[in-house]
Design a protein around this nucleic acid. Sequence first.
DNA 1: CTGAAGTTTCAGTAATTTCTGAAAACTATA
DNA 2: TATAGTTTTCAGAAATTACTGAAACTTCAG
Lengths: 183, 183
Amino acid sequence: MTFTPLLQSFVMHFGEMGSRWGFNRTVGQMYALLVISDEPLSANDIAETLSISRGNVSMGLKELQSWRLVQQHHKPGDRKDYFMALGSVWDMAQRVLEERRKREIDPTLSLLRTILLESPANEQEAYAQSRLNEVHDLLENVTHWSQELQHLSPEKLETLMKLGAGVGKVLDMKDKLLPSKRN
Amino acid sequence: MTFTPLLQSFVMHFGEMGSRWGFNRTVGQMYALLVISDEPLSANDIAETLSISRGNVSMGLKELQSWRLVQQHHKPGDRKDYFMALGSVWDMAQRVLEERRKREIDPTLSLLRTILLESPANEQEAYAQSRLNEVHDLLENVTHWSQELQHLSPEKLETLMKLGAGVGKVLDMKDKLLPSKRN
DNA sequence: CTGAAGTTTCAGTAATTTCTGAAAACTATA
DNA sequence: TATAGTTTTCAGAAATTACTGAAACTTCAG
């Protein structure tokens, strides 16, 4: 692929942001490259384009696969592995959110559960537990919610987003129309 | 404050997770400590409890203040500064989300805007732009949405979360009942 | 104005993370 | 089975990030 300055600027930026998004610079660059490439790239293509070592590319691809953000692709009569970014932008966003939930929230949630099972040894622990209980409930809510949203179609999600704060009104409406259900 | 093993385990865990949440280990520990403490702590209290240097605490508090997660607090007749975690768990969550949006999404959004203003120099750039355009729209949607959600009351937010995927049905309902509005 | 009590800064060091490149391990073909 | 093309691994080097502690700074009371 031709790597013009315009494309380069995006790839480099994404590398910088990468660390904030949970992966390192080169992994960020690799992913950006795959996203904007109109054809699958081999590990060598990537290493050359970004001027990074072959070994680094191999590790980076492994990481991107663990995030399930890239797809492997084979060309007939060619032994090399080719890679491309996963489907739609929505798919990508879902993957990133899901993986981050797994890495950032799940472990904390499980620790909180065990902490909350203990009976408090003193005042201070009792206070801490009450605080942690709130955190636990919040994280659990967020987790459930994000899991359920994943089952919504992209169109519905878009409607929901466009609705924005208007969702408050819809909720009021629901309460009036469906008083049978709890909540 | 008494720093029992139970509390310690949480503080240390939060330190480890800290890096995934956008701040470093000690900042994570400091924040955890403030969250579970029932009284405001001085910088010295923090340094001692966590066995870290006074200078590090000073920098960490500065960072937590930049996230607007801690509040300064003065005791009458005492020149020391005391610190406590910000209000409710919801407030904390909002702050973290907002700050992360600023750090993770905003810069990318602004770069995407400038890239999309350029006219594509070749096939490859045209393809890249179409892809980046999708990313741009998604990020913009997410940004607007999260901003609007911040204006919803905690109770409404909780209702929305508990609703989960059920929100899809409510959206259908809305379309039937309010066919006048677009979307 | 002085000095005691406190906070912040920052140069240097320590710890951690990332990257390289050569070697080992695959894998398909002959 | 040998071998050529390819990918993976991983020890060590390089780069980055975090932490310490002493010095500089600030603030306030006397």
